[in-house]
Design a protein around this nucleic acid. Structure first.
Length: 821
DNA sequence: GGGCGTTGCGTTTTT
DNA sequence: CGCAACGCCC
């Protein structure tokens, strides 16, 4: 039960502590420790009973550096959150004395949520230091900005802004950005920052490759320019804090003292800068607990160093290692497959995962003819699982590269299987959202040049390069923000009358909005800004397919703003948080890359595209050494361990690479799977036509399929009748192809049962021939044929396609858009 | 400033 | 092959 005294104290403390410095702080802590200890003694540690021995030791081991090697599905987050709860509960530290860092906002949110469940909401409110590396970085940096040459109101540049800035620099330096693309420079700078290198520290050879040795010089110029703009990029959020700590030991000490416990999630993903950052802070207490899994390190290419985790014992004196090897996620066949595969890696700390969930189904391996058959097979399996009663939410297709998604999307759309692409273009990365945000940022802060420049001519208002250049040059010469420069210039004849009037009007609008900041609610003001600026109108006029969804996104943005108290709160969130989840009630299959699947789990997982050159990717193979290949293998390991019950791996014999068909070989990873835990499945194609051609090969010999199959192909499939007819030829081709391969021997051959085709109720279509419709993927079109749920649509932007009616909206009726998406 | 043609490229992605 | 980014021309 919660003690009223404790929660009262907790509610009061944070503010006090944030205001007072060390002496007061220490006194407070000492006082608190006693009282908290007393309370703790009376509190139950019931939550410990839910843990296994290893987890428990990871939670209770509070007095030395600790590395928790947490295999996939072993309860990593549980350990992390319970440990925090335990620290609080035992009175070891108060919530604001715990630093807990994650990589993604999602992970941070999840942790908060779970801690709250353990110790109650009120305890979490006072956890200001639970967040991503970057959000913690901003927090620290804002407090001490002046010490690293910034004002605490600094703005955070996203990669778009960064690129625009670099392009400007290249122009100033008169470097041909064709030959030396800004992208490449950005990449170099990012990697230097990942490694914690300020311009002075960059090994001189490294900059030589760019623009005749100007690489480092440009890096320096870029940093200087950002200081002028009072801006930082993402890398700086770590690097500048590092600089701050190194140059101001007193401040470092303050934080070392403050953070009595440090916890790090996904330690295998830390880069050098993050590592140095942590090590500096951990020198205070030595009470650092890192949780991670070297076998799941898949971000080496963006600076993550597996070595950090491999070196842990050497880095932190007296460190202990706890291995979590009890897996609570997958069945035995799946786990054995993952384990044998990953055992082919040399550089690893080594773990042996075990499960007591049971054997379960074997991993299914299937060879298909091409990507279309692959998608068809997976889609058929998905429908089968659905009939077995598994929710679409519990199914996922995990691909190596995003181009693989297309054939799956096509297939899902024609079959009417609802799906979601996870990790696609993110909400805040869409142009319309960035534009809107730029308006808001420029309104709130007139010296935010980056944002102002973004929208000065969006929508087009006749302020071209020439005009912008005049303002720009003047602003730089006078060292004043663009908007101020513009304000002064409109009083002169520097700019031709027409654009001059336009700028004056624009500046006037901005001032008007700024003036309303007090009186109006922020969402209301946001709407006004988007309207008056002509931004909304710009998209309303736009005839392109995406225009409507862009407008919807803007609406959603404004709605979402309402969840924040004020404009600034919202903006701070926006600059750091790059995800906004679109909620849907409808179950959907998840489609995503292997990378974005890390941390997730599904009952049924499909891993298509296991071919050499695609997975492992050619780039990794070309590197020659094992480093790249081992990371690919870890990616495979991540993929396999996402599956709880059913796992299917597929490889195609032919794949289109850059438009050309190429025959491909099965991935070398396939031969690294344990034969005893894998079943080979024959193709779906028994070539016989009728329903048989799509017949489901059955999921191994456990016999459960027989019942399930009855009537399996009724419903929508027979309704439309023909969507599959086109595939006959190819189906039989693949059938014969597979005959010679691995595929023959085993059971689970396609049944010839035609399925009791239960009577299909042909629902009268709610669409009429000739009706105009809009489809999310294919755009506008006209109904050519309507049979039940299946429609044949003549699309304006592509050939006629068969689609399912639920993916289509009527164009003329405004009501129709309701709850479709 | 907008439209159109050419060119080059083509893993993985968070903050 | 498909697309995005750039440059050129009107």
């Amino acid at each position: 039960m919660k003690s009223p005294i404790l929660s009262m104290a907790k509610q009061r403390f944070p503010n006090l502590l944030e205001l007072h410095r060390t002496t007061d702080l220490t006194r407070w802590i000492n006082q608190m420790s006693l009282s908290q200890k007393a309370i703790a003694a009376s509190r139950s540690t019931e939550y410990l009973n839910d843990l296994n021995d290893e987890q428990r030791s990871a939670v209770e081991n509070l007095d030395n550096p600790l590395l928790v090697l947490a295999g996939a599905g072993t309860g990593k987050t549980r350990v992390l959150t319970t440990r925090i709860a335990h620290i609080l509960n035992m009175g070891r530290a108060s919530s604001w004395q715990i630093l807990a860092v994650t990589f993604t906002n999602k992970a941070a949110k999840e942790m908060k949520h779970r801690i709250a469940k353990l110790v109650g909401e009120s305890a979490i409110e006072g956890m200001p230091w639970l967040g991503t590396f970057h959000s913690v970085g901003v927090k620290i940096l804002r407090r001490h900005a002046e010490l690293v040459g910034l004002q605490s109101s600094f703005t955070i540049l996203d990669s778009d802004d960064q690129l625009r800035l670099l392009k400007q620099l290249l122009k100033v330096e008169q470097i041909d950005d064709k030959r030396w693309p800004a992208r490449q420079l950005a990449g170099m700078i990012d990697s230097w920052k990942n490694r914690g290198l300020l311009p002075d520290k960059v090994p001189s050879v490294e900059g030589e490759g760019f623009a005749n040795g100007k690489g480092v010089e440009l890096y320096r110029a870029y940093q200087a320019r950002m200081k002028d703009l009072n801006a930082v990029d993402f890398g700086d959020l770590l690097l500048e804090v590092l600089k701050l700590f190194q140059r101001h030991p007193d401040i470092l000490k303050e934080y070392q003292k403050k953070f009595r416990y440090i916890l790090v999630d996904e330690y295998q993903d830390t880069n050098v800068a993050q590592y140095l950052w942590l090590r500096l802070l951990a020198q205070g207490s030595e009470n650092v607990c890192c949780v991670g899994d070297d076998d799941q390190s898949i971000y080496g290419w963006r600076g993550a160093e597996v070595e950090n985790i491999l070196r842990f014992e050497k880095d932190f004196k007296g460190a202990k290692i706890v291995r979590l090897e009890q897996n609570y996620r997958s069945t035995d066949h799946i786990l054995k497959s993952a384990s044998l595969l990953i055992s082919h890696n040399a550089e690893r700390l080594g773990k042996t995962l075990h499960t007591n969930i049971g054997l379960g189904d074997k991993v299914i391996l299937q060879s298909v003819w091409d990507d279309e058959e692959e998608a068809r097979t997976v889609a058929d399996d998905i429908e089968q699982y659905q009939r077995d009663g598994i929710s679409l939410n519990e199914m996922a297709v995990l691909v190596r590269a995003s181009f693989q998604m297309r054939s799956f999307e096509d297939r899902f759309l024609t079959m009417g299987i609802p799906y979601r692409v996870v990790g696609g273009p993110r909400f805040y990365e869409r142009a319309e959202i960035k534009d809107a945000i730029a308006y808001f940022a420029a309104m709130l802060n007139p010296s935010n040049d980056i944002k102002f420049e973004r929208i000065i001519n969006v929508p087009k208002r006749g302020l071209g390069d020439a005009t912008v250049k005049v303002i720009h040059d003047y602003a730089r010469a006078e060292k004043i923000p663009l908007m101020i420069a513009a304000r002064q210039l409109v009083e002169t004849e520097e700019i031709r009358p027409k654009p001059r009037a336009t700028i004056r009007a624009l500046l006037g609008q901005f001032e008007g909005w700024r003036g309303k900041l007090e009186e109006l609610g922020h969402t209301q003001l946001a709407e006004i800004i988007l309207d008056e600026s002509g931004y909304t109108a710009m998209w309303q006029k736009d005839k392109s397919v995406q225009a409507q969804s862009r407008l919807d996104n803007l609406k959603e943005l404004v709605r979402f703003m309402g969840e924040f108290e004020n404009f600034t709160g919202f903006m701070e969130h926006v600059s750091l948080v790059m995800d906004a989840e679109v909620e849907t009630n409808e179950p959907q299959v998840s489609l995503m890359t292997l990378h974005s699947s890390k941390g997730l789990e599904f009952d049924c997982v499909f891993l298509p595209g296991w071919e050499d050159g695609l997975f492992p990717h050619q780039r990794a193979l070309d590197e020659g050494d094992l480093v790249g290949l081992e990371e690919e293998r870890r990616l495979a390991y991540v993929g396999i361990t996402r599956a709880k019950k059913h796992l299917k791996i597929l490889f195609a014999q032919n794949r289109r690479v850059h438009g050309k068909w190429q025959s491909s070989l099965p991935s070398r990873f396939i031969d690294e799977l344990p034969e005893a835990n894998v079943d080979i499945q024959l193709g779906n194609s028994s070539g016989g036509g009728g329903y048989g051609k799509n017949s489901y090969g059955g999921y191994n010999a456990k016999g459960r399929q027989a019942e399930v199959f009855a009537g399996a192909y009724s419903g929508q499939k027979s309704a439309g009748g023909s969507p599959y007819d086109n595939y006959d030829a190819k189906n039989s081709a693949s059938y014969y192809q597979q005959g010679g391969g691995k595929g023959w021997a085993k059971k689970g051959q396609s049944r010839q049962i035609e399925g009791k085709v239960t009577k299909v109720e042909i629902v009268e279509s709610s669409f009429a021939v000739g009706e105009r419709v809009f489809h999310q993927k294919f755009g506008y079109g006209t109904v050519e044929k309507a049979e039940g749920k299946t429609l044949l649509i003549n699309f304006e932007k592509s050939e006629s396609k068969k689609v399912i009616d639920r993916f289509v909206e009527k164009v003329d009726e405004p009501e129709a858009q309701g709850d479709l998406f």
